[in-house]
Design a protein around this nucleic acid. Structure first.
Lengths: 211, 211
DNA sequence: CTTAATTTGTCCGTATGTATG
DNA sequence: ACATACATACGGACAAATTAA
């Protein structure tokens, strides 16, 4: 009753159960999870089994364990999984291109969405970006694109983008450089004017420059 | 020498070690890894510790373990991490709309890509679909769209789409019904003629009908 | 079909290092 | 300094599944 789900793997089931506990107890980011022994007892499994589930979640960056202190719900931005998985992915030919292309899919989609709605096309952020670029203020690429995806209000797309960004070799966390400035300004202007095609075109030329 | 990396966490270090073994022994996708006991002995750790590392890798989709049989190197393209992350995201309110929209993002991107390349725009599959629809043969929606994404040759996008499809409420596995037929035919025709805008427009109207 | 060996799945007891009060 | 709570780690034991003889 209630817990009748059939999971092929037990520890995957435990991961599910821990997720449920997090939800039921309304555990927020940074909060402490029940201890290993408590979890094991509550879920009616051995400590090793509970530990295997916890370790898996840790490698994914979902939780954070501190020796002698406890287990805590992690901020997703910890992304410990990235370094581990990136190495695996990079060893496979052709995979990196897929990652970059998929990242771009989400970026293009965000730009299209912005251009198609009055509200998102005229957010004060875009003007603010425009003037910062004009005044040669230091700006990071990923901040601009992140704002765009955030504005679309699709958190899943944002999450996927955030993940793919880490796999991308592109220097996304670097400052905007010389010849990019006018291209980004064109992009911002096109969004404000709701000219979708022009915006996407500026975007493509921007990407051609930095990669 | 060689293994002088300082890992805060032991099991992360073990994950690295296992990776090295995979590389050194030239273990290919589908091949069997050394048994847990062998690994533990080779890496000078307890079996529990080795298991925690293996389980972490399993949750990431890097390996596959079969009870009583052994541990095998998995195809990384399975990308189980997306699935795990997605489940966490889905608990947030409004997530379902995000899923549907994100799924559409990948579908639109595929259609755009198809229209922009001679090779993908003129695949025999599209003609075959067209005539099947004409002759009122039974066709499933997801088969058509899946073929489109496969044709773009972006396996990551395909994986994400496949995942999102499962969470979508849309009856994607059902047969194509009456009024959809002409819309899909328009879509297929537009792809063959490489008319991107027309194709996307047909796609939107198709989606409006079924959801 | 039976049996034995191998391997993963699970649990427990014990010992140790670390953080907190 | 001490006690408590917790994660870390090891190794043994047995169950369950698979494979091969």
């Amino acid at each position: 009753m209630g817990t009748e789900k059939k999971a092929e793997k037990r520890f995957l089931y435990i991961v599910e159960q821990i997720r449920e506990i997090i939800r039921e107890e309304n555990i927020q980011v940074g909060d402490k999870l029940p201890s290993e022994r408590t979890l094991a007892e509550r879920l009616q499994v051995g400590r090793s089994t509970a530990r295997e589930a916890l370790r898996s979640m840790e490698l994914l960056g979902l939780i954070e364990t501190r020796h002698g202190e406890g287990t805590f719900l992690a901020d997703v931005k910890k992304h410990q999984l990235v370094e581990v998985l990136a190495r695996f992915i990079l060893e496979q030919p052709g995979a990196l291109e897929d990652v970059v292309e998929t990242r771009r899919i989400h970026e293009r989609a965000a730009i299209s969405t912005l251009c198609r709605h009055e509200r998102t096309a005229h957010l004060p952020v875009w003007e603010s970006f425009y003037y910062k670029l004009d005044e040669n203020e230091s700006m990071v690429r990923e901040d601009i694109i992140r704002e765009m995806i955030i504005a679309t209000n699709n958190r899943l797309s944002l999450k996927i983008w955030f993940l793919l960004k880490q796999y991308s070799s592109a220097p996304f966390n670097e400052d905007v450089q010389g010849e990019e400035v006018p291209l980004i300004q064109q992009l911002l202007m096109a969004i404000a004017e709701m000219k979708e095609e022009e915006a996407l075109d500026s975007y493509e030329r921007w990407m051609d420059v930095i990669e």
